[in-house]
């Protein structure tokens, strides 16, 4: 492996050795390589530059380039670990790792907290939750009176915001999700268990000499 994947590295900036990525994540080397097949397809859907842009991410999620989606944008920003405006393969694998069924539950809770703490203040504020709720209603073409939205927010904050300071801190979030485990469903992708079956072509494109499983 002296000149390890130099061609791949040129074509895919930020591409990392699958063996190293596997050692840092819950994925096996084969699974990392299968994820690379998925990455190749997403990152070449608009511009074939080996990186996933926001537009390509949205296209992969919604299968069309429709209107901006607050939540897809937020996920994209969290995946864009290096804050470059694009997702490279290393970012992609490490971020998806949090969604692996075997990933530590604390990592999932931490990711979900950052997801909802949109302005990164260390708190999930009522105003942020209202903004997300309105975005959700808009996306699903559901109409609720502002009064009803406020009732939902009151109820939610009465339950989650234990010290009643109008914002949810990390400890309160931990407490809240442990009482409402269904909130963590979005943080686990069972698909990640079958990734090698979904993308079997990784076998033909393998960069490692022997695939350890």
């Amino acid at each position: 492996m002296g000149c390890f994947n130099s061609k791949v590295r040129k074509q895919f900036p930020g591409h990392e050795n699958p063996v190293i990525l596997a050692s840092q994540t819950a994925f096996s080397v084969s699974e990392v390589e299968a994820l690379f097949e998925l990455f190749k397809s997403i990152s070449s859907s608009v511009i074939d530059d080996g990186l996933i842009s926001k537009e390509e991410f949205q296209l992969a999620l919604f299968k069309n380039r429709k209107k901006e989606n607050l939540f897809a944008n937020r996920i994209f920003d969290l995946f864009d670990v290096k804050r470059k405006g694009v997702i490279d393969f290393g970012d992609f694998v490490r971020s998806l790792n949090v969604f692996h069924p075997n990933a530590p539950f604390e990592d999932k809770i931490e990711f979900s907290f950052r997801l909802y703490d949109m302005d990164s203040t260390g708190f999930i504020e009522r105003q942020e939750v209202k903004q997300m709720l309105i975005a959700l209603l808009c996306e699903s073409e559901m109409r609720l009176a502002d009064e009803t939205i406020e009732i939902i927010l009151d109820k939610t904050f009465l339950d989650a915001d234990v010290n009643q300071d109008g914002k949810i801190d990390k400890a309160e979030w931990l407490n809240f999700v442990s009482r409402n485990p269904s909130l963590m469903k979005i943080m686990t992708l069972t698909y990640l268990r079958d990734i090698t079956t979904t993308f079997p072509s990784f076998v033909f494109n393998s960069e490692v000499e022997e695939i350890a499983t």
Binding site: L38, S41, I42, A60, L61, F62, K63, N69, L70, F71, A72, N73, R74, I75, L96, F99, L115, Y116, V129, M132, L133, A135, L136, E139, S140, L144, T148, I151, I152, L153, K155, T156, D159, A160, F176, N180, S182, L183, K185, I186, L189, Y191, I195, T198
Partner: peptide
Amino acid sequence: RPVTMNAFELISHSQGLNLSNLFDK
């Protein structure tokens, strides 16, 4: 009808948070 779901339960139904769509070929 009374709304029984909390705000986060509603939010978690967003399509933008459903990453399983990434795996549909």
